[in-house]
Simulated scan of single mutants.
Amino acid sequence: MRSMNAYVFPVTLLLASNVFMTAAWYWHLKYKATPLLIVILISWGLAFFEYCLAVPANRLGSEVYSPAQLKTIQEVITLIVFAGFSAVYLGHTPTWNTAIGFALIALGAYFVFRG
């Protein structure tokens, strides 16, 4: 039987990597006056940390999850992190349509893990 850490640690790394990824992609929306080149350079810096977490998450996670399961976990985490970031940082509360769309994606994730 595999250790619970073998299942939880990659998910934790994916969660942390998605925080950096979401910040890299969307932080600048509050700073539209900042020159695009500066935004790109800062976002690349954030993405570096995202990759430093995502690559080991996938390497370690491949010991207990299939590639499709890892991608599904990453996508579900991305939606959760994005919804929180969008609401807290950008001030865009998700609508019912957004919630329904995310729920349908979560339903798709169910089928990936169903076996």
Rank of each mutant, 00 (worst) to 15 (best):
V81S: 09
I73K: 04
S66G: 05
T93D: 10
V81F: 07
L60T: 05
I77T: 15
L53D: 02
H92R: 13
F102D: 15
E75D: 10
I100N: 08
P56V: 01
Q74A: 15
Y89F: 13
A83K: 06
Y51D: 06
P94H: 09
V55L: 05
Q74C: 09
V76S: 10
F82R: 08
Q74R: 05
C52L: 15
P67A: 05
V88A: 02
S66A: 02
W96I: 15
A54L: 05
A68N: 08
G91E: 10
L79K: 09
F85M: 10
Q74F: 11
K71A: 13
T95Y: 03
A68H: 03
Q69H: 00
L79C: 15
L60H: 07
V55W: 01
K71V: 14
Y51I: 13
T98L: 14
Y65N: 06
T98N: 13
F85Q: 01
G84L: 15
L90V: 10
S62R: 06
P56R: 00
S66W: 00
A87Y: 05
V76R: 06
G101V: 12
V76H: 05
P56F: 00
T78D: 11
I80W: 05
Y89M: 14
I77S: 05
E75Y: 06
H92G: 04
S66V: 01
A99F: 12
S86Q: 08
S66P: 11
C52H: 00
E75L: 06
K71D: 14
I100M: 09
V88S: 00
S62I: 06
Y51H: 08
A87C: 06
T72L: 10
E50R: 04
K71H: 12
I100G: 10
G84N: 07
G101Y: 04
H92C: 05
A68V: 04
T93F: 11
S62V: 02
S62G: 12
E75S: 13
Y65H: 02
N58W: 08
L90W: 01
